[in-house]
Design a binder for these strands. Structure first.
Ligand SMILES: [Mn+2]
Ligand SMILES: [Mn+2]
Ligand SMILES: [Zn+2]
Ligand SMILES: [Zn+2]
Lengths: 154, 154
DNA sequence: GTGAAAATGAAAGTCAATTTCAAAAATAAG
DNA sequence: CTTATTTTTGAAATTGACTTTCATTTTCAC
């Protein structure tokens, strides 16, 4: 049976994926999925775990970890590895590639897309006869607020 | 005393840095430095350690590790963190920023620079009022050889 | 040479990520 | 509604790359 995801919500899509894998539905996992997908952040497991525990103190770290991995496999989350060495996950609401500006002062993350950069990347790949599968573009620096803060303290 | 590095070899520069820090010269460290700087690769500690041991079996992992950190502090090496989760070091022969194309099949790494991309990055940073300190641009895919290999096996 | 100071390396410690496994929860079968 | 089967859970153990420790060895200034 072919499945049309076009009219499915992300959560439904997740249930469907689970069904196809012979998974069972659990209260805790559903809560994690719903909470994560509703947010619009780049969560580390730890951060997500801490927030979830406020409401659901019996959720374990492993469950959060495994749920994020599941969502990533299902294509509902994307795992990001920025320079701080902690994996972060963001929901994929509508497939829509983007790159990141990251403030090394406060951790603020801004997303951007730039068609010209993407094009130039392809030109480079072609030049070296590579077929690219993915790329990573991250700009690290200080956001406006952190620049101001820094000026004050010096 | 101000030091002019312009006419110094990288190794001399290293000795100078060591001197300024009150370090002593050791046979093993010198060998590691000389071997590493002569190569033109992106070495992981492990890889470098294994190669060095072929000639100098008494060199320890810690010494290789510490020497690479030293070189990085001295500005003679640059630490890179690609997607495989293992830190790599490359000599900085002439200060010269570049980005990387990485083959996920064989590990081959190609360096490139692109002024237009750099410029566009600055435009983006400006747009969001960021002051960037560094950036990371990595293109992952298959090199020509690995594409061929893949076609054969399918 | 001698002694103070730095370098070394085996082993231990870190830290996030990942796996294990016995108990709990969900679902299928009766 | 039971009972049986399968999946899920979480505390604890393990992993793997990195980093530090500390007793011993090497370097080097005198
Ligand atoms: Mn994002
Ligand atoms: Mn390079
Ligand atoms: Zn900031
Ligand atoms: Zn290749």
């Amino acid at each position: 049976m072919k499945v049309n995801f076009k009219n499915k919500s992300a959560l439904d899509q997740f249930k469907l994926e689970k069904y196809k894998r012979g998974l069972k539905t659990s209260k805790k996992r559903s809560y994690i999925v719903q909470y994560f997908l509703a947010a619009d952040r780049h969560y580390s497991i730890e951060e997500l775990y801490d927030e979830l525990r406020a409401e659901h103190p019996r959720i374990g770290y492993s469950t959060v970890y495994r749920t994020m991995k599941l969502l990533t496999e299902c294509g509902l989350a994307s795992e990001r590895n920025f320079a701080d060495g902690v994996a972060r996950f963001e929901p994929i609401h509508r497939t829509h590639h983007h790159d990141h500006l990251i403030c090394t002062g406060c951790g603020k993350i801004i997303e951007f897309t730039n068609r010209n950069i993407e094009r130039l990347q392809q030109t480079i790949a072609r030049k070296y006869k590579f077929v690219t599968a993915s790329h990573k573009l991250e700009l690290y620096g200080l956001c406006a607020a952190c620049q101001k803060k820094k000026r004050k303290n010096s």
